[in-house]
């Protein structure tokens, strides 16, 4: 879960890392200053390049430009920066540890200069070899990384000023798997369709094609999308119902993907923990209670496959055994459309 800039800065402040003075507004009249830096509170990167940050002499008017594009704007004092640097902590998957990244020159193009970034494995604060106030900030940032179960904590730029080091921006990504330890953060979460899906126990990503896809297991569903593309089709979504899905969860998944009006629905289930008959029951039920005017193509194999096939056959739904045959059939439907 990504935190917004101001949420990250609140955490920085709590840990004693200096941040510019500022406040969040959602209406133009809430702006108290004329001279200010206005920063749209969106989660995407490269805000400066996209015009989502305005250094303004007329903040009360300029803020309207940003409030048209997002719901919250951070209004901050301008600070005099002498030098910009870069500091972050991240997870190194290959070495299976936390790494500190530091560069003397920071800024928005840091990714294009990987040679200038020093990387250091950090297991505890003693491993942080920076000096003076930098070490102080790094130590606090490392504490945030651990306390908040973060995948990434980043200050870019970390500014040298007359008053000392200041975190001009904040980027914090909390590990979704750890949210049970950080329920206070979850309540603030914006509720998107994709988040609602994850609360129902499945993984869902919207795509822009017309073949709706439901499957079990992330790898299998990703592979299904690839095979669809390989045969010239375009998937409408990625939906992994997860392991051991109940028929209710499956019906919920069908409701979600069908609400986006795809041309065909492809269901690809390889039952291990997941029982095929539960999934078949959901498909039959859903079809009975809702009018579905697009073809449903089902691939079902594995645990309780026979019971599932019987149930589907009785209700005039054909299930194939090969994933690639199913994909070819789905692509054919769309082509003939």
């Amino acid at each position: 879960m990504k935190l917004k800039e101001y949420q990250g800065k609140e955490i920085f402040r709590k840990y004693g890392i200096n941040v510019p003075e500022g406040y969040v507004v959602s209406k133009p009249e809430e702006v108290k200053d004329d001279k200010a830096v206005l920063k749209a509170q969106v989660l995407e990167g490269s805000r400066k390049k996209k015009g989502l940050i305005i250094v303004s002499d007329n903040a009360k008017q300029d803020v309207e430009k940003l409030l048209g594009k997002c719901s919250e704007v951070l209004v901050e004092e301008m600070i005099q920066i002498e030098k910009e640097s870069y500091l972050s902590f991240t997870i190194d998957r290959f070495e299976k540890c936390v790494k500190m990244l530091y560069a003397e020159e920071g800024g928005i193009d840091i990714e294009e200069n990987p040679d200038k970034v020093k990387k250091l494995k950090v297991e505890n604060v003693e491993d942080i070899t920076l000096q003076g106030s930098l070490k102080n900030v790094a130590t606090k940032l490392f504490k945030i990384m651990k306390d908040y179960d973060a995948e990434l904590v980043e200050i870019n730029p970390l500014a040298f000023t007359k008053e000392g080091l200041v975190a001009v921006d904040s980027k914090i990504i909390i590990d979704d798997n750890s949210l049970f330890r950080h329920l206070d953060l979850v309540e603030n979460k914006v509720c998107l369709a994709e988040d609602r899906a994850s609360m129902c126990g499945f993984n869902y990503v919207e795509l822009d094609g017309n073949i709706a896809v439901i499957g079990n297991g992330a790898g299998l569903v990703m592979s299904t999308l690839d095979v669809i593309n390989y045969y010239g089709g375009k998937p409408a979504d990625f939906l992994d119902i997860g392991g051991g899905a109940s028929s209710e969860r499956m019906e919920e998944a069908m409701r979600l993907v069908l609400s986006r009006n795809p041309k065909v629905l492809l269901i690809n289930i390889f039952g291990g923990i997941t029982r095929c008959d539960e999934i078949a029951k959901a498909i039959v039920n859903y079809k009975k209670n809702n009018s579905i005017n697009i073809p449903i193509i089902v691939r079902m194999i594995g645990t309780n496959q026979k019971q599932a096939q019987k149930l589907l056959n009785e209700n005039c739904i054909v299930a194939l055994e090969s994933m690639e045959d199913c994909v070819k059939a789905a692509v054919e439907v769309v082509k003939n459309d």
């Binding site: 979704d176 993984n203 790898g219 990703m222 990625f238």
Partner: peptide, 13 residues
């Protein structure tokens, strides 16, 4: 797997 996965989206795992 994931040749056609979009950037920045967590594909299940």
């Amino acid at each position: 797997a994931g040749v056609f996965a979009p950037e920045g989206k967590r594909m299940g795992h």
